[in-house]
Nucleic acid binder design. Structure first.
Lengths: 349, 349
DNA sequence: ATGAAAGCGCTAACAG
DNA sequence: CTGTTAGCGCTTTCAT
């Protein structure tokens, strides 16, 4: 009695009422069912004993745990997973929910045999999570694992081909377009897109935005350089494309790491940034974009909001509110630092 | 019956036995209590119905949830939290446990008023986690919040001053010593330590290792340059210390980001790495150390193992095994890439 | 307005 | 060897 936590029975005893009365007061169902006097006594007793309903009892009774499951690829090494998860947690905490994360490793959601993710999902369902959120590190289109359709669910930073599940993704096309417009507005005419691979959906979207902005500005798109996602990829590509007189005056990199590689290469090639060359990144990667010299101008992805909105969506479903939305395209945010500036004179074609 | 999952009662009915018999078979307690024939029928029925004991019922009955709580600071932006958490999850999964993460933001564990963390811990305890792991992003010594002492717990990448809790931390001193020895073995005599602030415990430990190695090699330590933790911090510091004829031939950076800043600055100053200057980092930060040009030689911190061993420790406590250890100092791992090489000739003092 | 009783799914002690 | 029973802590009818 002294060591273990108080139960509803203890409170009831102390207040001289039945356990049901306690339950009602704790759940706000006491309206016309418990006398005001009793309510006050119950509240007082609960306070005195520091009583909190045991979530285990509640869960068993209500068949809901107040836990949201998150299934994600490579949380381990991603600089962004944390932001997305924070978004989920933030929305969850606001409504008294907790989250459980299941990390299934980097090769996840890849092949047709989505064994690992189905296992992870089943595991979470077995644990009776109330809802599930599927999140990926980069924008992806994937086949939604069947078990996911058996409970409230949403996708964050990914979507399924069939549109069965609400997807909360960044509007990468629009983001890339706005980013490119930033460069054209600075007078740049030769703007080169560098980086990325074929494994994700992000590149086509970003390229589409790039092309749209170039067309709008009456400029000719340069053939994009597919170069990978890492610093050294940007570095290597830059060695090639930044030489010669026809070199671009601005580089739009597929992400901040590639942009950093270009920045590194520019130094070695004697190009000043941004006076001789403007560099624009993508992602606003923590500890990177704001810390390079000069700091990277970059189009940030709304990881936090993707997580938060996905969580809000499933929580709404849980509250019985019919899906008010079927997903969302969330705006990207442009952060200007020092790596972009006016096009150098004498380069206007 | 068709839509909801099968219960022990369903299995018992199908096998023509009592519910308790089913329970025993599922828990391996059937030894001398259930006839072999019945056991087989039960197993068969369970398989047919795809029966899995409901964790909720088990939890309520046994007063344990099979969930480990992780309380951590700034998972959101840390490149390492994920690795540590993966370590915890890996050990947890091996024994059928799950983990719940509670992120309390970057200012955590700071002041004397540890309100936020106590709240997070209480929240997890309320949810009846079986054990708790306290993890920080960088090595820290902190006051262990009282509620933590009420259940099996361990600390990962941090420790408390009083030694009340088992702490699993990296042997940063030994790591720094070995790292410095790598440089002295290459013939470097002027080795400069750059980076870090005063807010964590890591710097004193790393400096101690540096000094030890220098002394052993019969060299004079250079006054360390306290410069911060980010790329631009390393860049700025390098601008000052890499000029002049008395410049160091090797830099040992407080982390990989600072090392990257030095690398960037070296390029601008016309210093080739590693021919003119060796640069050694700390952390082996994903997406950074292996991706710079040249790749960073770096002393990696065992984040995964810190998480994994902390989890194994609390799981042992849960299994009733008395604490076999009171924590551990885990070895760091040196990864050699291209940023370190022999000391340039003509610089031997 | 109140309390008694049933039961969520499970396990452990005990009687047959 | 087997089945019955009692409860883990809670909510929700249903009588009173």
């Amino acid at each position: 009695m002294s060591t273990s936590r108080p139960t509803a029975r203890d409170v009831a005893q102390r207040a001289g009422v039945s356990r049901s009365a306690v339950s009602m007061v704790m759940n706000g169902t006491a309206a016309g069912n418990v006398s005001a006097a009793a309510q006050e006594r119950i509240r007082e007793a609960a306070r005195a004993l520091d009583y909190r309903p045991d979530p285990l009892g509640v869960s068993l009774r209500q068949q809901r745990t107040g836990i949201i499951g998150i299934v994600t690829d490579e949380i381990a090494s991603s600089p962004f997973a944390g932001k997305l998860i924070s978004g989920v947690n933030s929305a969850a905490a606001d409504r008294g929910y907790l989250s459980i994360i299941s990390d299934i490793g980097q090769t996840a959601f890849a092949g047709p045999g989505t064994v690992r993710e189905e296992h992870a999902i089943r595991q979470l369902i077995r644990r009776r999570v109330d809802a599930l959120i599927l999140a990926t590190n980069g924008l992806r289109t994937l086949r939604v694992p069947k078990p996911l359709l058996t409970l409230p669910a949403a996708m964050a930073n990914c979507r399924d081909a069939e549109g069965l599940l609400a997807a909360f993704i960044a509007d990468e096309r629009e983001g890339a377009q706005r980013a490119t417009e930033h460069l054209t507005a600075l007078g740049h005419r030769r703007i080169l897109f560098i980086g990325g691979g074929d494994d994700e959906d992000a590149i086509p979207a970003r390229l589409a935005g790039y092309h749209a902005a170039m067309t709008t500005a009456g400029l000719e798109s340069l053939p994009p350089v597919s170069a990978g996602w890492e610093i050294n990829d940007g570095f290597t590509a830059a060695q090639v494309v930044l030489t010669g007189t026809e070199r671009p005056t601005a580089v739009f990199a597929a992400n901040d790491r590639v942009a950093t590689g270009v920045l590194l290469a520019a130094g070695g090639l004697g190009l000043r940034v941004p006076q001789d060359l403007s560099i624009l990144g993508f992602d606003d990667q923590p500890h990177l974009a704001e810390a390079t010299v000069p700091g990277l101008s970059t189009m940030g992805l709304p990881h936090f909001d993707m997580g938060r909105q996905a969580a809000e969506h499933v929580l709404n479903l849980l509250d019985g509110q019919e899906s008010t939305t079927n997903g969302a395209m969330i705006h990207c945010h442009l952060t200007l630092r020092e790596s972009t500036g006016p096009a150098p004179a004498g380069f206007n074609c």
